[in-house]
Amino acid sequence: MDSYQQQEIEHENHVWSLRERNPALTLSYPNVDPDRIDTPVFAIRLGRGPADDELPLHSHRKGQLVIAENGSVTCRVENGIWMVPTFGAFWVPGGIAHSNSVSPNGSVICVFVDGEVSGLPRKCCTLGVTPLMRVITEALTQRSVRYTPDSPSGRLAQVLMDEFAKAPTSDQHLPISSDPRLLAVAEHLLADPADRRTVAEWAAELAMSERSFARWVVRETGLTFGQWRRQLHGLVALERLSAGSSVQIIAQDLGYESTSAFITMFKKVFGDSPRRYLRRIEATGELGGSTPFA
């Protein structure tokens, strides 16, 4: 029996009500409501089955650190879509509505953190997970979610928070807005990233002038359309690299004329070539292009 099942049995009175409110949800893993567990920091491991649904938008009082243990994780919040590869993590502060989608047959470790714990980022961000953080979170998933501060679990949790507070963050996300037109464009390009329609063609699609469309995208995202689509391609590439796809296949799937053109795009987004980038994350936890959070 794996650790999250043990924790669910131990806390069977804390079953998350999401499934109760959404009886049609298909989930192969158990859930606990983090706000019904008074421990300030605890970790559980979750694995995704091939038929599992993406959880709907939800929020909780505790903040959540989602660590991609195997595969990748896509996290959606109101103003952006975030992607983290294996050994990366996404942080969402408490109270922010979000949904997490794990790649098929992937697994994550979720660390729930009480808002009273000091030194936490005040906004959503991605961050690298150092080898030490991976060892500690793995150990916490094997322990009860209830412990005292001076217990071995309590001391491990404190070291984890110390490491968390020092971790550099990165802005690996696709900015979006509540405008349904932009959401539709984002969903289309995520499903078909090889679509190479120009600004003029997208403007015509949305019954806008080319100039109005260009200004609208900058106003909604802070990026030009070219920069925004490049960011989207970078996140899609990261997801597929984490799934084991080759650089050559990803370049073709994203509509690049050559592998070298794809690598140039990837370097602009992440600061390194695809393979070196993934090796660096695994070895050091550094995501690249990062700055300490304030």
Rank of each mutant, 00 (worst) to 15 (best):
E239S: 12
S170F: 14
T224E: 00
L190P: 08
D35Y: 07
G95F: 04
G288S: 02
V185C: 09
A261N: 09
L287M: 15
M208H: 09
V218Y: 09
H58D: 06
E8A: 15
T264C: 02
E220L: 13
E78R: 10
L127C: 14
H188T: 12
L65I: 06
R181Y: 10
Q172S: 04
D192V: 15
E12L: 11
R215S: 11
S144H: 08
S101V: 07
S177T: 04
I37H: 10
E205C: 08
L132A: 12
D53S: 12
G47M: 13
E187R: 14
D162H: 04
I96W: 02
T224I: 03
A139P: 03
L189F: 00
G244D: 02
G47T: 13
E187M: 05
F164H: 08
V185S: 10
I9E: 10
P85E: 04
S72M: 05
F270H: 09
R181A: 15
W202S: 00
A184V: 13
V66P: 06
E8C: 06
Q252V: 00
V113N: 12
D272K: 09
P93D: 04
F262C: 00
V102Y: 06
R21H: 07
P149K: 07
S28K: 04
Q6A: 15
E257L: 09
F164T: 01
W216C: 00
G80C: 12
